[in-house]
C-alpha cells in the first residue's frame, strides 16, 4: 500500500514538474541543424483539415493493444523481433528520429507487456535520446521509469507512465503545430506493431492475430491520408510510396459484418455491454504472406534510414 502511495506521489510530482518545464519553454536543447523546418509544412495547405488530421492520428490504435493481443494469443516473447537501439546516433534528421521513435515506442509496449524490465532500460535510453532530439524529452519521466523498471516495482504504473508519456508527447506535437512529426511517430508505431504481429503469425498462425492484421485495413487508409499531406517533401513521398505498397496488398482483404443485438450484464458490480455483431475477415494465406513482406519492407526501410 505504502509503495503504491509512493509511486502515486512520484507520478504526481513528476507530472507537475513536467508541466512547469513545458511552461518554461520546452527545455534548453538547441534545435538540430539537420531538422526539417516546420515552416516547410505550415506554408502548404493541408489536404484534410487540421481537426480531421488530429482525429485520425488520435485514433491509430495503441501499440499496447497489439502487444496485449499477441501475448493473449500465447505467443512467447521473442527479443529478435525488436529493432536494434544501437544506431540512434546515426538518426540525424527529425524525419528519421520521429519514425524510429515510433518504432522504439511500440517495442517498449511489447517489452512492458512481457515485463522484460532489463531490456526496457536499454529501450528507454534510445527513446529518451530521440525524444530529446525532437524537443519532446520533457514528457518522459526517465528517473521514475528507471526506478520502477530496475526494482521490478509496480509494473502497472510502469506501463501507465510509458503509454501516457507517448500520448503526452503526441498531444504536445500537435498542439505546437508539429503534426508532421506526430504523423511520423504514429506511423513508426503502427508499422512496428504490424511487423510484430506478422512475425508472430509466421511462427504461430493464431486466428485472432491474423484477423487483427486483416482488419487494420481501415487504419492503414487513414494513415495514408495523413501522410499524403506532406508528400511534397521527398522523404515523406518515399514513405508514402512504401506504405501504398502495403495498401495494394490489402486490396485482397475483405471484411464482412453480421448485425446482432447488444446485451448487458453485470460482472463484479460493473456493467458490461456485449456487442453481438459479428465481424468476418476474409484473408487468404497468400494475401497474408504478401502483406507480411510489404510490412517487412516498410519496417526495414525505417530502421535502416
Amino acid at each position: 500500500m505504502n509503495r503504491k502511495i509512493t509511486t502515486l506521489l512520484s507520478i504526481l510530482i513528476a507530472g507537475s514538474s513536467l508541466l512547469m518545464i513545458d511552461c518554461s519553454g520546452n527545455g534548453s536543447k538547441k534545435a538540430d541543424d539537420m531538422s526539417i523546418p516546420d515552416s516547410i509544412f505550415e506554408n502548404k495547405p493541408l489536404l484534410i483539415s487540421k481537426e480531421a488530421m488530429n482525429d485520425i492520428i488520435d485514433n491509430i490504435s495503441s501499440p499496447v493493444e497489439m502487444a496485449a493481443l499477441i501475448k493473449s494469443a500465447g505467443a512467447p516473447f521473442n527479443q529478435k523481433y525488436l529493432a536494434q537501439t544501437n544506431r540512434v546516433d546515426n538518426l540525424n534528421t527529425n524525419f528519421k528520429q520521429a519514425l524510429n521513435l515510433g518504432v522504439y515506442g511500440c517495442d517498449l509496449g511489447y517489452l512492458n507487456m512481457y515485463e522484460k524490465t532489463g531490456s526496457i532500460m536499454v529501450s528507454m535510453t534510445a527513446i529518451k535520446k530521440l525524444a530529446d532530439e525532437l524537443r519532446i524529452g520533457q514528457f518522459f519521466d526517465f528517473n521514475t521509469i528507471k526506478r520502477l523498471a530496475t526494482n521490478n516495482e509496480n509494473l502497472d504504473s510502469l506501463m501507465y507512465i510509458s503509454v501516457a508519456s507517448f500520448n503526452n508527447m503526441d498531444e504536445f506535437l500537435r498542439e505546437s503545430n508539429r503534426s508532421n512529426i506526430s504523423a511520423l511517430l504514429v506511423t513508426g508505431m503502427w508499422i512496428e506493431g504490424m511487423y510484430l504481429a506478422c512475425q508472430v503469425v509466421k511462427e504461430n498462425p493464431e486466428r485472432t492475430v491474423i484477423e487483427r492484421i486483416g482488419d487494420s485495413k481501415m487504419v492503414l487508409n487513414s494513415l495514408i491520408l495523413i501522410l499524403r499531406n506532406y508528400k511534397s517533401d521527398p522523404a515523406f513521398a518515399n514513405l508514402v510510396k512504401e506504405i501504398e505498397k502495403i495498401k495494394k496488398e490489402y486490396e485482397a482483404v475483405s471484411v464482412r459484418y453480421e448485425a446482432g443485438e447488444p446485451e448487458a450484464k453485470e460482472v463484479d458490480g460493473m456493467l458490461i455491454i456485449i456487442q453481438n455483431d459479428k465481424q468476418i475477415v476474409d484473408i487468404s494465406d497468400e494475401t497474408l504472406a504478401n502483406i507480411t513482406v510489404a510490412i517487412e519492407n516498410a519496417r526495414n526501410m525505417i530502421i535502416n534510414l
Binding site: 481501415m218 460493473m270 458490461i272 455491454i273 456485449i274 456487442q275 455483431d277 459479428k278
Partner: peptide
C-alpha cells in the same frame, strides 16, 4: 462501463 467489442 465495460464494452466487449466484437467489431473493429
Amino acid at each position: 462501463v465495460g464494452f466487449q467489442c466484437n467489431k473493429t
